[in-house]
Design a protein around this nucleic acid. Structure first.
Lengths: 122, 122
DNA sequence: TGGTTAATTAACCATATGGTTTAATATAAC
DNA sequence: GTTATATTAAACCATATGGTTAATTAACCA
């Protein structure tokens, strides 16, 4: 798909690309600097491709000076992504509520039955 | 890749799957109920495959009763995903700071030039 | 001019992904 | 037992993805 959110999530769905973003948290870096930690595992063109994916998703910006391409994070798409996910916040908070309630339930049952370490049907 | 975060982001990188999750915000639903809004665009097995991807990513849970599989959201992986993204929050907030600063800069320039109807930040 | 460095492009390959249609399975219901 | 319904599985296909190596481009340097 070509919609923005799909491109963002798709770009994030690869550990190498997430690691590249992570490197860029320390500030700008050019392609070969970024590639250095990965050259045991894969080639420079492989990294360049990953950077292109990140760039197309708008997650990094490249600026050209001489023969170097300096990359930097552009986090706007991440904001979009997190906003999308945030619709579901109540669902994971709710499940903690339920867990909390469940814990209270078994605790009160233990108390009322004087149970020390018996397992109960959930 | 097979790591958890990659699977989550990968599952979210498809608009059909995001729409399915969105449907599930209204509560549990079985496969054919979920598929109904999509049957113009794609087949039931296609939806079933998407649901399987969501299930493998842990984003939904299926419970079997008779021949129906009721699906419900499991948001825990979303929490993980949003936590990962949140590392980068300063990067998008920082850029808003910069924008804000930029706006102040041009506004003060306008003022100093005696502009009458320049737009102002609300 | 020629050499070195940084990065991209090209051509290729294996596997994954997203879809199809047809068949199979499982359960209910008559 | 047969039939209808809900879902999955199988086989297949086109395109996307993630990697490779070798070649090319672009800029600097001397």
């Amino acid at each position: 798909m070509t919609d923005h959110l799909s491109m963002t999530f798709s770009a994030l769905a690869d550990p190498t690309r997430r690691a590249l973003l992570s490197e860029l948290m320390n500030g700008e870096a050019n392609v070969s600097e970024l590639a250095k930690p990965f050259l045991n595992e894969m080639s420079l063109p492989a990294i360049a491709k990953h950077l292109k994916v990140l760039e197309k998703a708008g997650l990094i910006k490249k600026t050209k000076t001489a023969q170097w391409r300096s990359c930097q994070i552009n986090a706007a798409p991440l904001k979009e992504a997190t906003n999308w996910i945030d619709q579901y916040r109540e669902f994971w908070e709710e499940s903690f509520d339920r867990l909390d309630e469940y814990i209270k339930t078994i605790q009160s049952k233990k108390k009322s039955k004087g149970l020390k370490n018996g397992r109960r049907k959930t």
